[in-house]
Amino acid sequence: MINVLIGIAALVLVVLLALIYRVFTLVQIAKKRETGEEPRVTSSNRINALLFIIFFAVLFGSIFWYSIAAKDDYMLPEAASEHGGAIDMLFWVTTGVVFFVFFVTHCLLFFFPYLYSYKEGKKAEFLVHDNRLELAWTVVPAIVLTILVVSGWTVWSEITDPAPEDSVEIEIVGRQFGWNTRYAGPDGKIGKHNFRKIDATNGLGLDFEADAANNDDFVANELVLPKGKNVLLKIRSRDVLHSVFLPHFRLKMDAVPGQPTQFWFKPIYTTEEMRQRLAEKGDPNAADFNYHLACTEICGSAHYAMSMKVRVLSEEEYAEWEKEQKPWAELNADYLAEKGIEISNMTSLK
């Protein structure tokens, strides 16, 4: 239905434009006959000037209308991480400044054509330059930008500071096309890996011979996070570039083969709490809400489907979930035996 309407609207527009064009050419031919000489500009000049005003009204009208009407659609739920609030604050302050400049410059840019369109016999002002004006619009943007960049830099430095000592380390590994997570287990240490150890079973390349810390590590197909604790994501990739994007946590970091990266943050709302907050705001789909991880670095044909569910649990729930998980070595004892790798201290660690 909408398609048909759009089609009709487009058709009407074309016909209308053709009609207007025809009328104006005729008027001009008539005019030319009267005066006998060709004027510098035709009536199109006035129409174009007027169209700038109309364009301005429609442009800003629709921007304001959509920004308000669709507010709940495009705005993400409030940041679910501690640093996320600071990023959002920066974003909206910058947006405010930017929108103000956008509006003011476009008032001038779209109204000047209307105000100063060509008039026979008028002469433009011979204005070559104006040092005060130029100084003003060099210095003012410089100051505003300095304020924005310094506040941005403060936040950036805090976010990229080394992770606190007590952070929970979680390894996240990208591959074509999916993610895996690995948790440290009771010893609190993520074991070493070696890409040459990777095979169909040992997808993450756990190197048991090199590091006994691997023995109690467990692997998951989802990202489970404890609320209120600092989490340090150790990010790596198995094949090509990927990028860990957790939009609700305002977190993004590329996964680079051969060069581990990291990002630390503190989740502040559990999935359940976020659902409640959304429900309070009247979101009809609040009950189905889930955090998600998306890949944001082009990585091949199924790039668009490379997602992973993210769950944030309260600290107690998290501890319980952790206890339920079985070490990878225990689940794959046959594989290790086949490879001749002996795991002696796995159970003792438990």
Binding site: N45, T105, F112, P113, Y118, E125, L127
Partner: peptide, 15 residues
């Protein structure tokens, strides 16, 4: 950008 806008100001614009 500012210089372009100021060039339009008090001009005699032919579109």
């Amino acid at each position: 950008a500012f210089n372009y806008i100021t060039t339009l100001w008090r001009g005699n614009l032919v579109f």
